[in-house]
């Protein structure tokens, strides 16, 4: 092992878990684990890939430690944290060492970071359950664009699967080129590059209801209580381009 070793995984959760499993078994302390997509070529790194089993025995083993623990591991995978792979490695290492009580050991840096990341991912997913805005297409499909910091499209899809179960809808993550399509009780998340964002035809009543919503949004505010800072705290600007009622306030919007 040397400082220039970079361990590569294909970007999927299972592949990352397997990589970590093997690193732990071989007692290697990695300096860098990186997904193929984020790999930057530089002359000094020594890129390594671990050949892997396809069974998910390790995932089951981690789930056995405790469900909460496993959920946190998964949340870390979904986050956009630069060091998420290493944090996951050390969090799992400690999970194997301490068992289910690991989530109470905030004194350990990796545990604290993993827990913070997990609550950030869940907080963002919860916020977006409210902030996602669908638009109705000619085909009666409902379409929403999002661009979340963390990869929460799976959580959102599960939410809308229950809520809008008799509708057909699509959510497109512009940052990751991920499209979630739901029809007839099932959703699928697929990678779609070069989606023509401006080629959709909207249903005839789309403008009418968007307009009514804008009227409602403006009317419901009480002037004497204006508090923009409070508004921004709860609804950060990064979500505004995708929200119909905020569109006139931001330059770039979808």
């Amino acid at each position: 092992m040397n400082d220039f070793d970079v361990y590569l995984y294909d970007g999927s959760f299972n592949n990352l878990l397997n990589t970590i499993e093997i690193l732990i078994k071989e007692k290697i302390k990695p300096i860098k684990i990186v997904s193929e997509e984020c790999l930057e070529n530089d002359l000094f790194s020594n890129i390594k890939k671990k050949t892997l089993s396809i069974d998910n025995y390790f995932a089951k083993y981690l789930k056995n430690i405790s469900n909460d623990f496993f959920k946190i591991v998964y949340d870390v995978y979904l986050s956009d944290n630069q060091n998420k792979e290493l944090i996951m490695y050390y969090f799992i290492l400690n999970g194997l060492k301490y068992g289910s009580k690991v989530i109470y050991l905030r004194k350990l840096k990796c545990v604290n970071e993993a827990l913070n990341i997990s609550s950030y991912v869940r907080r963002e997913s919860h916020k977006l359950k409210g902030f996602v805005r669908f638009r109705k297409l000619e085909t009666n499909f409902f379409l929403a664009f999002i661009s979340p910091t963390n990869n929460v499209i799976g959580y959102l899809s599960n939410h809308f699967k229950k809520r809008l179960s008799n509708e057909s809808w699509m959510i497109y993550d512009l940052k990751r080129d991920l499209l979630s399509i739901y029809t007839k009780n099932k959703f699928m998340i697929i990678k779609v590059k070069d989606l023509e964002k401006n080629n959709f035809k909207f249903s005839s009543d789309e403008l009418e209801f968007a307009n009514l919503w804008n009227i409602f949004y403006k009317t419901i505010a009480i002037k004497q209580r204006t508090n923009k800072r409070c508004q921004m705290n709860f609804m950060p600007k990064k979500y505004w381009p995708y929200m119909i009622e905020m569109r006139d306030l931001v330059e770039k919007s979808y």
Binding site: K127, G130, F131, Y217, I220, A221, I222, K223, R225, T226, N227, K228, R229, C230, Q231, N233, F234, M235, M243, E245
Partner: peptide, 8 residues
Amino acid sequence: CHSFSSDG
């Protein structure tokens, strides 16, 4: 919460 008005 689905949105926040200008009064927060």
